[in-house]
Design a protein around this nucleic acid. Structure first.
Ligand code: NAD
Ligand code: NAD
Lengths: 209, 209
DNA sequence: TTATTATTGTGAAAAAAATTACAACTTACA
DNA sequence: TGTAAGTTGTAATTTTTTTCACAATAATAA
């Protein structure tokens, strides 16, 4: 098997693969079938060499005349970053942000699906919101394993973060994407990703200054 | 003047400074006055050396006995990443995401303020939403210079992205934080930051797999 | 046929970022 | 007093990421 080990792909490359695929989808829909490294680079705001290097790392080869075949490349990226069986996601905290994320994400990825939401507000529970069934938070430990949910997006009120994260870990969650701006630590084997718009804005403001 | 040149701070350090400050605020509110590098490191999920290294780069010194004085450190970080005069921000596209961001951000930072929003839906314009006046998009070119807005957060519908970005650039914007997942390119001198939750989720999914 | 141009793939170098190793200091207390 | 424990600051090293430089190949046109 001539495939590269995917585990040792540089972290940055993994991030970019996701973005390549998004842009390649667009190009496909515009009717393009092939793309050159410099075209993809321009869309991504990076250099053609970096594109070629990333594709080299995943073992994909293009041709000097036609560049890369978009469909093949999309498929290969899928093989690498998607799991075969697909992964199931829960939104925890169905407020403004939770709803915005859910309706944005809906149906965008074949192998990733938001299958449940949780909240503690009775107004929001036991009904379908933004296309996803919203359960009471006290059913979390039951539903997460039952629905084979491996990833949680955390968008609860800040003061609930710690308690809810604890429950998620006890329920056997494998990855948490934390938007609450309350710092978390997770045990070995669980993956954590955090994002705060204020960090992005302050970084931007620093450079604009 | 013994101050370090701020321009040559590593990009990653700038990002972390913003996060340090957020966590230090929390600690202050809990009544702490001093903090050790290993405590801050734990909150940030990184190593104590890296914390010390970052603080070294901004020229801050602690003491072996008490660690760092939180108040002083917060002030120094402010001196470095905030602009003296403050910077003014517009939200462009007051939908789910625009509102979520606006209400989250409100009043969180002294030197960064969201002073205007824009939309093209008459239901949303000429009134105050989430504490911010929302104008019709066709007033953008007039209001951006009049209000000295230097940074825009782009949360319009995807199909409007390109046109709206063009108007922002013509209005003299200096930084764009783009959430639309439609790729943008900006001229020299304008700063661009992009974020897509799907990239975060796919990265997480890859590691969880 | 033979230059010319445009492209990919990749080794090697450079740059950026993180980690290691440890000197220097401070406090506590035996 | 002396020593053990705990801390900061930083030089040196290692690791990761990006960029440079160029060989190899294909298409095109003189
Ligand atoms: N990282 C970012 O860039 C960013 C941006 C906006 C908001 N936020 C944060 O995201 C979170 C959500 O923001 P929002 O604007 O949607 O707020 P929101 O108040 O609209 O939503 C919070 C939701 O959490 C629910 N909740 C509260 N306690 C709960 C509990 N114990 N168990 C289950 N659900 C519970 C509430 O019922 C509500 O539906 C907040 O913590 C906010 O600070 C982060
Ligand atoms: N990056 C991410 O993680 C992420 C997450 C969620 C949504 N999104 C994207 O962010 C954007 C907003 O998402 P949303 O859920 O708030 O959608 P939404 O439909 O609720 O909001 C879009 C807003 O843009 C306004 N708009 C449309 N055309 C406009 C124009 N020409 N000028 C001014 N305003 C205009 C609409 O009136 C609406 O208020 C979308 O592009 C969506 O794809 C990105």
């Amino acid at each position: 098997m001539p495939n590269k080990k995917n585990e040792d792909l540089p972290g940055k490359t993994v991030e970019r693969l996701s973005q390549y695929r998004r842009l390649l989808f667009n190009s496909l829909q515009e009717g393009k079938t092939n793309i050159y490294s410099h075209e993809l680079a321009r869309l991504m705001n990076l250099t053609p060499v970096q594109v070629r290097r990333d594709l080299m790392l995943i073992g994909y080869s293009g041709s000097q005349s036609k560049g890369y075949i978009i469909k093949d490349l999309v498929n290969l990226i899928g093989k690498i970053i998607d799991s075969d069986t697909g992964q199931r996601i829960a939104i925890v905290g169905m407020g403004n942000l939770g709803r915005a994320i859910t309706s944005y994400f809906l149906g965008k990825r074949e192998k990733l699906s938001i299958v449940a939401a949780f909240d503690n507000d009775p107004q929001k529970t036991d009904r379908i919101i933004a296309g996803v069934p919203c359960h009471h938070i006290n059913k979390l430990k039951e539903i997460v394993p039952a629905e084979s949910i491996s990833i949680a997006v955390l968008t609860v009120a800040p003061e609930a973060t710690y308690e809810v994260a604890k429950q998620l870990l006890e329920a056997g969650i494998k990855g948490i994407l934390n938007y609450t701006s309350v710092p978390l630590t997770v045990p070995e084997g669980v993956h954590l990703e955090e994002y705060d718009i204020i960090t992005s804005l302050e970084k931007l403001a620093f450079h604009v200054k």
